[in-house]
Amino acid sequence: MKLNPISLFRTMTRMRAFDEACLEGVQTFEIHGELHTGIGQEAIGVALAQSLTPNDAVVSTHRNHFHALAKGVPPRALMAEIFEKETGLCRGRGGHMHPFDPEHHFSATGIVGASLPVALGYAYKFKMMGLPHIAVGICGDGATNHGTFHECLNMAAAWSLPLVCLVENNEYAISVRFRDVTATPTIAERASAYGITGRRVDGTDVEAVTLAFAETARHTRKGGGPSLLEATCYRFRGHYEGDHDNYRERAEKQRMRVEMDPILRYRRELLEHGAATEAELDAIGAKAREEMTAMLADVRADAMPDPAGAMDYVFAEVM
């Protein structure tokens, strides 16, 4: 797989700028519920974007923005949904935790542990119809201790379904440390219990995670059965905006935000290898922020859903 470094950098930068724009809505209460940003986890989003085809399916989590963008969900409709607008992807009914885009085969769930079963349904259909698509079920380290993790990998392996289980291991299930509640040092090693391919990769090294996901996806797409990819990363902000986040040492956070920032890391790498100049990379960053600032201004002008429609869409048809 040939990588385009500038494109990888740009995609990560746009993702971060997207979430930074969303952060503004929290301060102003335009987003009046929770917001879980993916800041620090951009490289994994890029890995998805590089390998998925339009017909593949992705089922994501409460921290879903980058996965949605990677799957081709229109950024403006996604941002409008996050800002609870009628113009949003789901007409303001779903909000940031529940974006659904059937056209791009993307969905998410706000319930930890609930994404893999739905992804399994897509995988089953692809296998049943003999289609060359894959279903990617994304979960965090917290969800890997949920019963569905075992149930789904078991079924996917038993029936050789094209399911890629992508685990974003950011070390914390809200406040609970992965190592305090998990029997094995890694999640990837559990793959052997199901006789499937399992792999662990540094999810903040954009090239490494992109290549690892590409290989994993190819294996499954070519009929190799389900696979498990554990991408390590670090959540830069609290579990949600407003989380007091007193369960992580300040020193740890400061250190990790430097060491595990996928954008900073890649920037250094590109500069070291002379793949780009500081000015070029700065310009990419500035352009991304400009794009998202403009998008935010645009979204803010949209109408909120009409209260008269609050009961619409409960059922597909009027009985």
Binding site: C90, R93, G94, F100, P102, A316
Partner: peptide
């Protein structure tokens, strides 16, 4: 999901 998707699903 039908409701959360604004009738799209």
């Amino acid at each position: 999901i039908p409701y959360m998707s604004g009738g799209r699903v």
